[in-house]
Design a protein around this nucleic acid. Structure first.
Length: 462
RNA sequence: GGCGACAUCGCCAAGUGGUAAGGCAGAGGUCUGCAAAAUCUCCAUCCCCAGUUCGAAUCUGGGUGUCGCCUCCA
């Protein structure tokens, strides 16, 4: 299988450090607000990566951090007239609720920065002792000139940045690109004691500590996040880790593209921000998932209502297909016929090619078509349904299959519904279209769709 | 100014040298009191120019356009 590696800027064959095991780390949220639809993309995508690797038989350890120490949280606390801790706590809870609603499986470890302050201090001290970091008046900086490969991940050269000269001059730093490891305490901010006095860690160290700690190694397989994290965050993480271990923090660096809103970058000033929470009010979690997966993860993707509606239709189609044969599919079937094992291969080939989910989805459409087709044998349709369910599950779909397939309203409701249908049949027989349409429309408002078929009137929950 | 990505039907989107997947929307047929659903059929030569090649959406060069990063950011 191939993965595009930001570090080498090409697709590479994926070989984990330990055979059959994959250790992966993805940057999680900074808990100062509800996370938005753009944040949700990597959460969903790396969930799929993890699922797929497990499906392929790898034993996956997946770590995602929660940044609960940060300027943005401090600012939010001031803004809301609250405390730093309360803000973090509130949005951690919200994060957990929203990811669960999105159908994202919990990572194996989800540690917080605040849990490892001691280890972060140790890392910074180590960097200082070995000459990679220096202290100026209570602040500690990483010296980019001390790490000769600085810039290798993002493809940036230190001197170009100097020439750019957009960076605010900071007289304390030896080099403009040097980044903060430890910040001196300011009044009113949360602080921890350290060899450099009271202060708090910068953003770039926590991921180094948390990944190495929970993955139990200095260098692991996959590190992921949004493209904007490549520089400076991931570049800086790697600089710290590699300076000390002489190995890259991770072998494969994966970065997902951005989400635009109506063709424009999502930003607070444009007021085109959508939280995942808000979107979930309008659309099913799986429609959101489909929206993300319908395009390659590295491409930018435009978010708008039409596209969400389309995604919703697509997901409903998968469910509808299975509904037509009234059969609860089984995953993990071993004995697919030739026809279906080759379709399965198409799916695998697509996913093996740097997670080409858009192509993988086309296999699902093809299967759905077979499931629905009354030209196929029932056993063939069931087989197609099994595979559809199996592959869909890998991508995180069909989480609601039981409830979607069920038309169970409880015995009484069903009886009442039958009565209404009978009345409507009578009205229809009398060509009383006003009444029959009224019954149909009223039921539709309650989420019951009537379907007049050759074999009489049928109904289903919408 | 530096670095990088992308440009395929009305919309979304695969395709990385061998003659344009798939989805949505649309058109038409079947079915139908109407509607919905279902089902069948139809629907692109790939931003421009030049080059390489027997052959290019796919490679090279040059344009044009859109976007991202370089500052907190998924």
């Amino acid at each position: 299988m191939k993965i595009y590696n930001t570090l080498t800027k090409k697709k590479e064959n994926f070989t984990p450090i330990e055979a059959n095991k994959v250790k992966m780390y993805a940057c999680g949220p900074t808990v100062y607000n509800y996370f938005h639809i753009g944040n949700a993309r990597p959460f969903v995508f790396f969930d799929v990566v993890r699922n797929y690797l497990e499906y392929k038989g790898f034993e996956v350890t997946y770590v995602q951090n929660i940044t609960d120490i940060d300027d943005k949280i401090i600012n939010k606390a001031i803004e809301d007239n609250s405390t730093f801790k309360k803000i973090a706590k509130k949005y951690i809870t919200a994060f957990e609720e929203d990811t669960q609603r999105l159908g994202i499986k919990k990572p194996d470890f989800q540690p917080k920065a605040s849990e490892v302050i001691g280890e972060i201090i140790k890392l910074i001290k180590d960097l200082e002792d070995k000459g990679f970091a220096y202290q100026v008046d209570g602040d500690v900086y990483f010296s980019v000139e001390s790490f000769k490969d600085y810039g290798k991940l993002s493809g940036k050269k230190i001197d170009d940045q100097k020439a750019g000269a957009r960076v605010e001059a900071n007289t304390n730093k030896k080099h403009p690109a040097d980044f903060t490891l430890w910040k001196k305490a300011k009044p009113g901010e949360p602080v921890w004691g350290s060899p450099w006095g009271q202060g708090r860690p910068g953003w770039h160290s926590e991921c180094v500590v948390l990944s190495q700690k929970y993955l139990e190694c200095q260098s692991f397989d996959i590190h992921g996040g949004g493209v904007d994290l490549v520089f400076p965050h991931h570049e800086n993480e790697n600089a710290q880790a590699e300076s000390l271990s002489h190995k890259p923090l991770a072998n494969y660096w994966m970065h997902n593209g951005f989400i635009n809103i109506e063709g424009e970058k999502m930003s607070k000033s444009l007021n085109n921000f959508f939280t995942a929470r808000d979107i979930l009010e309008e659309y099913d979690a799986e429609a959101i998932r489909f929206f993300f997966l319908s395009k390659h993860y590295r491409s930018p993707i435009d978010f708008n209502r039409d596209i969400m509606q389309e995604s919703d239709t697509a997901v409903q189609n998968f469910y509808k297909a299975i509904k037509t044969i009234n059969y609860l599919p089984q995953a993990g079937r071993q004995d697919y016929s030739c026809r279906f094992s080759s379709l399965k291969d198409v799916f695998f080939t697509a996913m093996d090619d740097d997670f080409n989910t858009a192509k993988a989805l086309s296999v699902m459409f093809e299967l759905a078509k077979i499931v629905k087709s009354n030209k196929e044998e029932e056993s063939v349709r069931k087989e197609a349904a099994d595979l559809l369910y199996e592959l869909g599950s890998v991508l995180g779909f069909f989480q609601e299959i039981e409830s979607k397939l069920s038309n169970d309203l409880g015995a009484l409701s069903e009886k009442l519904l039958t009565i209404l249908i009978n009345i409507r049949d009578e009205a229809k027989a009398n060509k009383n279209w006003v009444l029959s349409d009224k019954i149909r429309d009223s039921l539709l408002q309650e989420g019951i769709q009537l379907l007049d078929t050759k074999d009489g009137t049928k109904w289903e929950k919408k």
